[in-house]
């Protein structure tokens, strides 16, 4: 996990008028254009924006902007015990076994065995593991994010709006909504203007 702390995104100092703050959760690898448009809109409204993503590769345009912090979880997910175990059992383990057998068999049989093993591993990963894993993935991601939430400092500098922009980010959004019952937490990509939220607060 990396935490890209932009210089412009500092908590407010005592006595200064408070700048609204929004938290955007966007776990899809490629964000939908509506999600990017929402981020732009929130920045235009003068918000300090924290975006929690799996990978920042598709967020390059936003990354350099003042008042934006990107918070990536993808690397931490790859290190998660569940995924590591699956890689050992389904991919790397069988690959080693296949290579060992290939060495014993030698020649064309060897490459055929490796190919079949690779194909089988990929098919299992895609059709069995990922289908099952997708059901618990939002929970896994929310727990990974939990470990680093302190860096967002939500207790001392509360957000005005939490948006879970896709299905994968709902669990994290839902847990934050329970933790901060007075904050507007939504899956809508057309939330009310921040000025309206801060005025209501």
């Amino acid at each position: 996990m990396t935490f890209d702390d932009a210089a412009g995104n500092q908590p407010p100092t005592a006595g200064a008028s408070r700048t609204p703050r929004a938290l955007l959760l966007a776990f899809n690898h490629k964000p939908h254009e509506k999600v990017v448009a929402l981020a732009e809109r929130l920045l235009d409204e003068g918000a300090r924006l924290d975006v929690v993503v799996l990978s920042d590769t598709n967020w390059a345009d936003l990354a350099g902007r003042p008042n934006v912090r990107l918070f990536t979880l993808g690397a931490a997910e790859k290190r998660h015990p569940l995924l590591r175990t699956e890689r050992i059992v389904v991919t790397s383990g069988p690959r080693r076994v296949a290579r060992g057998l290939s060495r014993l068999a030698g020649g064309g049989t060897a490459s055929g065995l490796s190919r079949r093993q690779e194909r089988l591993s990929r098919a299992f990963h895609k059709r069995v593991f990922m289908k099952a894993y997708s059901n618990v993935r939002p929970l896994v991601l929310s727990r990974l994010a939990d470990k680093r939430l302190s860096e967002l400092d939500l207790e001392r500098d509360p957000v005005d709006l939490i948006v879970a922009s896709d299905a994968l980010s709902i669990t994290l959004g839902w847990r934050l909504a329970r933790r901060f019952p007075n904050v507007v937490a939504t899956t809508s990509l057309d939330p009310p203007p921040l000025a309206q939220l801060t005025a209501a607060a």
């Binding site: 929970l139 299905a167 839902w174 939504t186």
Partner: peptide, 20 residues
């Protein structure tokens, strides 16, 4: 429903399973 506060435990913890 768009309000995350209104989500129940099952949908909150397993949104993809709930949706499926």
């Amino acid at each position: 429903e768009r309000d995350l506060h209104a989500y129940g435990r099952f949908r909150g913890m397993s949104p993809i399973l709930a949706r499926n």
